[in-house]
Nucleic acid binder design. Structure first.
Lengths: 328, 328
DNA sequence: TTGAAAGCGCTAACAT
DNA sequence: ATGTTAGCGCTTTCAA
């Protein structure tokens, strides 16, 4: 690997001059520049970023900590992050905390070792003070950890609301909400939005908590059997909704005639099951991109006007809810 | 940010001593060590990895280039890579080439700038010479680019074979293979394995090429209608299989009585559709982990015995094929 | 417009 | 067992 000295020697100039041309900084004669550029090309010289960073104390890389990688929400967000990071010359270091705070800690230490310029965090941990003392620009995904720490979240309250609205407008009176683990803020927010709309219409609903990974179908079946006159169901994930649909099918209930179902996530599955699932779609790629944009301006300007961004969701109406040409 | 000098001053020793204690190298008196460690703790000193790497010319980070991120195969592999990388103190830099060779080039340049210690590549590009001149340990995923470049692949030939075997053993005579784009090596390999088994049983099959993302259901329908006495179908993805199942349902065909279907991938969907899908399962996490293991020994030893690893697949039998208690 | 030289934070050979 | 120091590859101030 050739270094700056080799280039300088080859071009018969000093290292300072070479540095000037590769950084497009300071005065350098056009002829000298050409000479240097030729030498660079011939030697296939690529500046060592470590030496550079050692001096400048920036790394042009950002760190991303997610609680999981194999989860469609996170990897789609990641794709959004990566896209905008690349466009702006940032590298992204990916970290899977595995919901483990120690592991997250270790990653954070890595980050300072490597002069990481910024952090995007999607974890559920609670080491707020650590984030703050790090003194590195940070953006949180899908969760407000602190008034001061910028965030980009999916509009979960709105998502719950719009799901309820659909069900209510379509005439549902006996509603169940099969939701995710209630410790999750996203789940709490969806519940708030969902219940708000029900409240406004003087309705209530039963709530059943399920795991997101491998939701227990037995529990679903029992609930369904205990509530024979159910006519509306909101599920916090399409996977849950798919299970609900299959249980409903076993019970001989017709969807959407007897029962209407709204899912969440709009994963591919939702278009492939029968009936096709009406669902709330989150814009993950956009969340990732917006997070990276926030982080970028935070890193450049040291501050951010629009601290907490909410990315709207969209209700995708398919066959598991009645089509309603009257209201809309 | 305190540096090694600050620690040395605080502990009343030289920087060399501090370096010795943080690296656990060379002799250092137990009392001095304690003194230094105390200073480190008090100052919250974290060594600057750039300075370190500048000297040592290693970065303890590996680069991963994938053609896409939002694809269950890649992110599951990524999770496997990340796991084993973390265990061994490696950071992973993630790059989405977006199937764009220029973009991949740029990433490769980044890699040398950052003294990346090793590369895992899952792309379909063809810049082999570039890989070689980089002179960085490299491992390829799911594809042998060169005899010399180690690889870890899913056993696609075996996957095709085992799918065919099931269908044949279950008595299928009129078989269709709905496959992915035939440019993909993985698709070619599955075809080879599938046809090999058919050959051995004096059978042939029709082949239909489809896109993996958004496969055209009309094409599927037409094929199915044109082949009314089809009794066995192999699909190169569960998504395709789900569409096939839904078309079959529309046509009034019973699965598995009239037609038996085998999918590929074992995504969650395959357990949620009706009937539950029999499918070939790839061990993505293991592929990632094995790739990282190969890369690790390659980086440590400069060489690797077992150059081309094949990770076996597994046929998961569910409801879309007849259960067969006789043969097995 | 260019070059010399100091220094970024660290490691390791050498000296003590 | 510990300290001194050169140097990793680069940027930038200062001087010419």
């Amino acid at each position: 690997m050739p270094n700056i000295k080799d280039v300088a020697k080859k071009a018969n100039v000093s290292v300072a001059t070479v540095s000037r041309v590769i950084n497009h900084k300071g005065y350098v004669n056009i002829e000298t520049r050409l000479l240097v550029e030729k030498a660079i090309k011939e030697l296939k010289y690529i500046p060592n970023e470590f030496a550079r960073s050692l001096f400048k104390k920036i790394s042009k890389t950002i760190g991303v900590i997610f609680p999981h990688l194999s989860n469609s929400f996170y990897y789609n967000v990641l794709e959004g992050i990566e896209e905008f990071a690349f466009e702006n010359g940032y590298k992204v270091m990916i970290c899977n905390s595995n919901e483990d705070e120690e592991r997250e800690e270790e990653y954070l230490n890595q980050f300072v070792k490597y002069n990481i310029d910024g952090i995007i965090i999607g974890s559920n941990s609670n080491i707020l003070s650590r984030y703050k003392e790090l003194n590195i620009p940070i953006v949180s995904i899908d969760r407000i950890i602190d008034e001061e720490i910028p965030s980009v979240s999916s509009d979960n309250v709105g998502g719950g609301y719009v799901a309820a609205k659909k069900l209510v407008e379509n005439g549902c009176k006996n509603i169940i909400h099969f939701r995710g683990p209630s410790i999750l803020l996203t789940v709490q927010d969806r519940t708030i939005g969902f219940n708000k709309c029900l409240d406004e219409n003087n309705l209530t609903c039963d709530i059943v908590d399920l795991a997101f990974i491998d939701p227990e179908s037995k529990l679903i079946r029992v609930c369904l059997e205990n509530n024979p006159n159910i006519d509306g169901i909101f599920c916090d994930s399409d996977t849950i909704a798919a299970i609900v649909l299959s249980e409903l099918n076993h019970m001989g209930k017709k969807v959407p005639d007897d029962v209407q179902v709204v899912g969440y996530d709009n994963i591919i599955l939702s278009q492939l099951i029968i009936p096709k699932l009406s669902t709330v779609s989150q814009k993950m790629f956009e969340i990732g991109k917006e997070a990276m944009i926030s982080l970028h301006t935070l890193m450049e300007n040291g501050t951010l006007d629009d601290k907490h961004k909410l990315i709207p969701v969209e209700l995708i109406e398919r066959e598991s809810t009645k089509s309603n040409n009257l209201t809309k």
